[in-house]
Design a binder for these strands. Structure first.
Lengths: 243, 243
DNA sequence: CAGTGGTCTAGACCACTTT
DNA sequence: AAGTGGTCTAGACCACTGA
């Protein structure tokens, strides 16, 4: 049962998370680190790593000298902004059963901004994929991804576009998406976006403007996303740096 | 020179951060963990902790088997959303020289929502403090904090309201602000907020709606903030959970 | 193959809370 | 005083990269 991959720490974290949400811990008190280490047969360091991650994501809190406790308010957060990865997963975490619709797929020359973002010459061809994520035919997220055509080694067909973007990058470009550098921009939806999302023109919405980087830290994709705020509320935990 | 408090790890992190932004590392390559440990006279674990924090905040990236490198794009982020703490600091990080103006201070009975957020009975008195953060007389952030009057042990005067909120809670309520649970909400600014921020009515803006918790994990403050998007752009790094 | 980061262990000592 | 989390060490072994 105890194996590598995922790491011991991840296994311990998952195990504890399960017990936490299952209400296994009376009155919200979690056993001491020493006790957990003995029970699970791992070192205290491993326990501490797992607990640190749970604390960071808001599931528990610790008080030096006192103990470790379940953090009820933190458990309400379904998906944290810094850890949103695939929109399908985000929707599932919210209890939805998401579907994906590929709105459009085309090529276009890179504009100045996108070229700078992706370290291309202006005019280099981009593959543009527009996707809509829905819950029960209700549009929730609209995304547009632009990636350099020259990265593509295996041709992309329309049916491939359904894949999550990181999967597409792996399968067709042999690149592994590592992280996004994102800006959050408030907008009043234009006619086109509002139409796609099924809301009135000028509805206030959040948008992400972001650049995705691969493991080599090379920019591989430029993405813009719009959210239906009434269906998907973005949450996060803010704390002092270094805490 | 080497002392406790801040922790060794924090000192190492600060030291490395300085060298990173100072361009000390040729071609972006950072010495190996073993080497750093020997140079600085600390254990590899301490080095790893410091590097992990730098990696998490986007200053560096690591490639197993290859090495550790400076992450130029990540260095552009002045203040990360999850680690915004005091708006004055955020503005300073952006190169501004911020000033604070206390707009209004009053008491009002708690409405249903705020009462639920702060675990109060509806109608309990709240202290409401509205503050405006400016750069060169240009308003950038407008915040409204609501805290239960009964938490206050030392009376709050108008001059006290200038303090950062966490300082006010410490001095007057003996509570220590631990974290905020925040929602990001897109809005079209109303007449009042637009006026305070010096922009046109209906300008799209981001707002935070959040609850602040203390070390005991008790809710202590309800806060709403509005941002001038043209002066303060919110950025963050999104990565896969657990990475 | 040597060198790098990734994971894990066992144990020490400290700071703090609670009784 | 006893028990808790916070920090740090030294060392082992693994997985991966690149020459």
């Amino acid at each position: 049962m105890i194996t590598r991959s995922p790491s011991l720490t991840e296994q311990v974290k998952a195990h504890l998370k399960e017990r936490i949400v299952g209400g296994d811990f009376e009155e919200g008190r979690i056993p001491s680190e020493t006790e957990l280490a003995a029970d699970l047969g791992v070192s205290r360091t491993t326990i501490r790593d797992a607990l640190s991650r749970l604390e960071h994501e808001g599931s528990i809190y610790r008080k030096q000298g006192a103990g470790t406790f379940v953090n009820q308010p933190g458990l309400q957060i379904k998906s944290r902004l810094e850890e949103m990865w695939s929109y399908e997963e985000v929707l599932r975490d919210h209890g939805y059963t998401p579907s994906v619709r590929v709105g459009e797929m085309r090529t276009e020359p890179a504009g100045e901004q996108v070229a700078a973002d992706l370290k291309l010459e202006p005019g280099e061809p981009l593959i543009v994929i527009e996707k809509l994520f829905l819950e029960n035919d209700l549009p929730v997220v609209l995304t547009t991804n632009r990636l350099p055509q020259r990265l593509v080694s295996v041709p992309v067909r329309a049916s491939d576009a359904r894949k999550p973007l990181y999967g597409l990058l792996e399968d067709h470009c042999d690149r592994f998406l590592s992280y996004y550098l994102s800006e959050i921009v408030p907008v009043a939806l234009g006619t086109y976006e509002a139409g796609r999302l099924g809301v009135a023109r000028r509805t206030p919405a959040l948008s992400f403007e972001e650049i995705g980087f691969d493991q080599e830290n090379e920019p591989v994709v430029n993405a813009t996303s719009f959210f239906r705020d009434d269906l998907l509320r973005l949450r996060l935990i803010r704390r002092k740096a270094g805490a």
